[in-house]
């Protein structure tokens, strides 16, 4: 059975400017987002995330390649775009209209005006008591909430949210996280989420793509990516000897660390690339949980006293920083 793709890009490329001033914002990007999941789209500033989203929404024309929504080309296809709701690069509104009037104007533009639905959406994003205030007086967080309401208008099947938690307080971020999961689990929507809040992404996304300089550098299920660079914490005495033993098997060079870190080392393991960090309180070995017996055996054979060997959970943030800095060094 073929998988239904809500969103797909094929060799998507976008250049801005001409001649010497030409800048490639998106570089042969291939992306596939299956329907019915929350897909995280991550990358540092200027990586090309928003440009990709703008191409998907036909706001910006691709230089090469194509963007597809539900298997159809998004380019000059307004009927197709009605199946998509989006919040792009910060919510914006007519400042002289109230939040509710703004939603009404957008709904009428789309031809899906439904007063009751607008009221329900306002309620859903927690803006019922502020919807009749002029949007010009809204805080960033309030605008974001209304922006999400606008994205949900017209019952779209695919919802693209570009930094939806910008400006939200912790409670708002939590509400947004719940809302996003609900959209997928209860309403059966697909959510394409671009965010810098990696903790949030880790909690809500099923899959993520990490983009850098317009290219995808990693893509996969969140759990799978985190397992890829799992780390093991080793507390042993003498620490320097333990470090030396582990270096014999994994270490290739020794690097001075920052505060709280004595040294960081990158090594080539037989099966995978791993790295080690030595901290004041122990050694961090970038290895999977299944490597722990081997690490323990090496240390015991060298008569080193082991106090703790435990897998250390790596966050998506750690992973993101590792991947993007790895690409920087490449």
């Amino acid at each position: 059975m073929s998988t239904v793709l809500a969103l797909e890009t094929r060799g998507l490329t976008k250049d801005f400017g001409r001649g010497k001033k030409r800048v490639r914002a998106v570089n042969h990007l291939d992306l596939q987002v299956e329907a019915g999941q929350v897909y995280g789209f991550l990358g540092p500033n200027g990586a090309g995330k928003t440009t990709t989203i703008r191409i998907l929404l036909d706001l910006v024309r691709a230089t090469q390649g194509e963007a597809l929504l539900f298997g159809q080309r998004a380019y000059r296809n307004p009927a197709l775009l009605k199946r998509v709701g989006a919040l792009v690069e910060g919510a914006t509104f007519y400042p002289y209209l109230t939040g509710r009037q703004n939603l009404e104007v957008l709904a009428r533009t789309e031809g899906t005006y439904d007063k009751a639905q607008i009221a329900r959406l306002i309620e859903r994003v927690g803006m019922a008591d502020r919807a009749d205030r002029r949007a010009g007086g809204y805080s960033t967080g309030m605008k974001q909430r209304m922006g999400v309401a606008a994205a949900l208008m017209g019952q779209p099947e695919l919802i693209i949210l570009d930094e939806p938690t910008n400006g939200l307080d912790p409670a708002g971020i939590q509400e947004m996280r719940i809302l996003v999961r609900e959209l997928v689990e209860k309403d059966g929507k697909t959510v394409f989420l671009s965010s810098h809040m990696l903790n949030e992404v880790e909690q809500v996304c099923d899959r993520v793509a990490i983009i850098r300089r317009g290219e995808i550098v990693r893509e996969g299920a969140v759990s799978g990516l985190l397992a890829e660079q799992a780390r093991v914490r080793v507390d042993a005495q003498p620490l320097e000897k333990a470090y030396a033993i582990l270096c014999q098997h994994w270490t290739t060079h020794y690097v001075a660390g920052g505060s709280g870190v004595l040294a960081v080392d990158r090594v080539e393991a037989p099966r995978r690339e791993v790295s080690q960090e030595v901290t004041h309180s122990g050694i961090l070995v970038n290895a999977a949980r299944e490597d722990i017996p081997q690490i323990a055996r090496k240390l015991i054979e060298a008569n080193i006293e082991i106090f703790e060997i435990a897998p250390e959970r790596q966050s998506l943030e750690d992973y993101f920083l590792a991947v993007t800095s790895e690409e920087n060094h490449a």
Binding site: L57, L59, P78, G85, E89, T92, P95, L106, T109
Partner: peptide, 14 residues
């Protein structure tokens, strides 16, 4: 100026 095109153009043809 109000950056509203991005909201409008996803809802109706240019």
């Amino acid at each position: 100026q109000r950056q509203m095109w991005k909201n409008l153009l996803q809802r109706r043809g240019r």
